[in-house]
Design a protein around this nucleic acid. Structure first.
Length: 474
RNA sequence: GGUGUCGUAGCCAAGUGGUAAGGCAGAGCUCUGCAAAAGCUCCAUCGCCGGUUCAAAUCCGGCCGACACCUCCA
């Protein structure tokens, strides 16, 4: 049974049921996603993987926001750059968002995020959104004003239950700019925005317009899951107003319970500061890869802190993550080359392994405690290395299997083994290694050390073991 | 102004009433021709002050210090 902290109740609650419907807020495809975004998507991945490891059936959707102010501005820029190329602004919008959508999927793959079942795009769900708008008007909680439709917050008695924002108090001392709005109440939020024929627009009973930001998630959840969902995830910044508004419109429009479990992931800081373009500490995944950072290291780094805590992205932290990944890989590679015999399995070690697997799962089931899960992994790595040390790298096949099976079990959530760098050792390198070992056997240590340095420069370090020498990528 | 989060060793980071997980870095040792890798050993009383309790990092109050949301934002 997995337990998750529920933002709605501010307490850890069990996830009931065996078949779960999950919706995670995904990217707005107006740019390449940054490392902070990926924390959130990786969090969704860890949730997904953990639930499956714990035996749940999972149907998981992550949306793509492809129509909003930012994407529309991008589309307008496109048409300015290449006048006449696009039939209308809507097709320019599609052209503008396509490469970022593609990049997003590529980036998820780079980080070894398991594919989600659905990736609904807002523009594919306009009818569903308009349907929700009509329901809200019929139910008396939304009203039209100059071609736009607004949600009347005053009608929702428990508005604010998720974020615990008290709009009555917030009304004064506020940053709302009243002049910009034609709404009955400044706090009301827009469901449907009137838009001229020149803008990105769809036809509706209220004239031409386009959806407000909050609308898509409610409509898509309703369409895809035909009802409420079990878990909804997103970054903490979405709690208010986005998720609060989603709750309001979904509950008022569809009636039934909307979301059982709200789970939010904290922000990532870079060098202890909020990441922002103006501060010059804004990194996309692509930027980092270009700097030579490895995806598996980024993945490990993001797992090393609990999702509910801020995590600080620094060069030092990344270095520490790299060391952790190396330890994991290095044991895996050791196991692939260990000499095997047909001796009986070591019962005590089998027990250690089984306990480690169980503990790993248990830690994750406890509100996705990845730091504790990693602690279990490290303890196991130590035990396994000690086991192999004691047997001078000659172990029973059954024991080797046990160890690999355990690492694979960890990897069902860690997702690191798929990203292991290919260690194809060329014949040239192998020849150098052989020559070095021959020199060493002949006690020509000067020559042996020269060759070792040469290999290191080529990017390989030598591991001398009882069963022979091996090269491992640095 | 409102709401909320956080402050644990040089660094990263768990633990939320029973006497401080794990990792990185560092030191010593084993192994090694020397190294590397691996293993073993060592390395903190939890921002400050007060309170509750047999017992507090963990609960309560105050203070100090970071930060987030309230506006597009993962």
């Amino acid at each position: 049974m997995v337990k998750l902290f529920n933002t709605l109740t501010r307490s850890k609650e069990p996830v009931e049921g065996s078949s779960l419907r999950i919706y995670s807020c995904g990217p707005t495809v107006y740019n390449y996603a940054h490392i902070g975004n990926f924390r959130s998507y990786l969090f969704a991945d860890v949730l997904n993987r953990t639930l499956k490891l714990a035996g749940y059936q999972v149907e998981h959707a992550m949306n793509l926001t492809d129509v909003d102010d930012k994407t529309i501005n991008g589309a307008i820029e496109l048409t300015k750059k290449e006048p006449g190329k696009y039939a209308d602004l809507k097709s320019a919008l599609a052209a503008y968002t396509a490469p970022y959508t593609e990049a997003f999927f590529a980036d998820l793959k780079t980080l070894n995020v398991i594919k989600f079942d659905h990736h609904p795009r807002a523009t594919d769900y306009i009818p569903a959104m308009l349907d929700l708008v009509e329901r809200l008007i019929q139910n008396g909680v939304a009203y039209e004003q100059d071609g736009s439709v607004y949600y009347r917050i005053g009608e929702k008695k428990d508005y604010g239950k998720l974020s615990r924002v008290d709009l009555e108090k917030n009304k004064t001392g506020t940053r709302y700019n009243t002049d910009e709005y034609d709404k009955d109440d400044v706090r009301d939020f827009v469901l449907w925005k009137a838009e001229s024929k020149d803008g990105v627009h769809w036809h509706s009973a209220h004239g031409d317009g386009r959806p407000g930001w909050h609308l898509e998630c409610s409509a898509m959840i309703h369409e895809i899951f035909k009802g409420g969902i079990d878990i909804h995830t997103g970054g903490v910044d979405l709690i208010f107003p986005h998720h609060e508004n989603e709750i309001a419109q979904s509950e008022a429009g569809y009636g039934a319970e909307f979301v059982k479990h709200w789970v939010h992931c904290e922000h990532l800081l870079v060098d202890n500061r909020k990441m922002s373009k103006s501060a010059g500490n804004f990194y996309t995944l692509r930027d980092l890869l270009q700097q030579g950072k490895r995806p598996e290291v980024i993945r490990y780094f993001l797992l090393s802190a609990h999702y509910s805590q801020k995590v600080n992205f620094t060069a030092e932290a990344l270095h520490q993550a790299e060391a952790g990944v190396e330890k994991f890989y290095s044991l895996w590679q050791r196991l692939t080359r260990v000499k095997k015999n047909s001796a009986q399995a070591d019962a005590e070690f089998a027990k250690t392994s089984a306990e480690a697997r169980a503990k790993f799962t248990a830690e994750l089931c406890d509100d996705l405690n990845t730091p504790r899960a990693l602690a279990v992994v490290h303890e196991y790595i130590r035990a396994a290395n000690a086991f192999a040390d004691a047997r001078q790298d000659v172990v029973a096949e059954a024991d080797a299997d046990e160890m690999m099976q355990t690492l694979r079990h960890f990897d069902k959530v860690l997702g690191l083994l798929d990203l292991i760098p290919k260690t194809g050792v060329s014949g040239d390198l192998q020849a150098l290694l052989d020559e070095r070992n021959a020199a060493r056997a002949a006690k020509d240590f000067k020559r042996a050390d020269e060759l070792r340095d040469q290999l290191l420069k080529a990017g390989y370090k030598i591991l001398d073991t009882k069963t022979g020498s091996h090269l491992e990528k640095v």
